[in-house]
Structures are given as C-alpha cells and as structure tokens.
C-alpha cells in the first residue's frame, strides 16, 4: 500500500485582483506551489455575486495550497491581519498526501 503523510490543505476565497498579493505572502513563508480555481458564483453576508468575464468586477478565485503544518501556520499568521480588509474566506484542513516530501 502506498504510504501517505498528513499535510495541510489551505483554501482561500479571494477577489481575483488580490491573488498576486496572497501568492506573494505564500512565497514569503516558503510555499512554492499553488493552484488557482475559477469560481462561477456564490453568496454570503454581503449578498450573492456572479463572475462575469466582461467586467471581471466581481471575479473571485480560490487559491488552493498544500503545505506542511509549519508553513501553513506561518501563512495563516501572515494573512490574519488581512482577513477583514481583503474579505478573505480562509479554511485549513488535514489531508493525506502521497509523496509528502513535495509539500
């Protein structure tokens, strides 16, 4: 059976124009891998929204990161002061990964 190790899966829902800022924070805590996931629509405290490619005014993206516990904690600490002003939705969970040395 393939051996797996525990890592942290971090998901950040963010307004698309702010994605480069968050990637910069991830790099600063030595996280080198991430994926960006297009989001079509959603809703929350401030009402519903829909992505439209024309204005991209309400575009949102999910940044998906898999990292070690230490790196994940460092990223969460770095993002904590920005949660309200950037309107971030940040979740962190345990996952099992193969090839754990990559994360």
């Amino acid at each position: 059976m393939v051996e797996t190790v525990t890592r942290k899966r971090i998901e950040i829902l963010v307004d698309t124009p702010l994605v480069p800022r968050l990637i910069k924070h991830a790099r600063e805590v030595d996280i080198s891998g991430w994926s960006l996931i297009h989001v079509d629509a959603g809703g929350g405290h401030d009402g519903a929204w829909q992505h439209d490619d024309v204005t991209e005014a309400a575009a949102k993206t999910i940044i998906l990161i898999i990292a070690s516990e230490a790196k994940a904690a460092a990223l969460v600490d770095a993002l904590a002061p920005l949660l309200d002003s950037y309107g971030l939705l940040l979740t962190v969970g345990d996952i099992q990964v193969v090839r754990g040395d990559r994360f």
Binding site: D15, P17, L18, R21, D46, V54, E56, A57, S85, Y86
Partner: peptide, 16 residues
C-alpha cells in the same frame, strides 16, 4: 472595468 480592479488592489478596505 479598470477602476474596480485598481481600487481592489489599492484600497482593499473599500467595499466593492
């Protein structure tokens, strides 16, 4: 188009 993206970057605390 141009301004909302710029404001989101420059003034993230402003309410889109």
């Amino acid at each position: 188009i141009a301004v909302p993206a710029a404001m989101r970057m420059a003034l993230p605390e402003a309410d889109p």
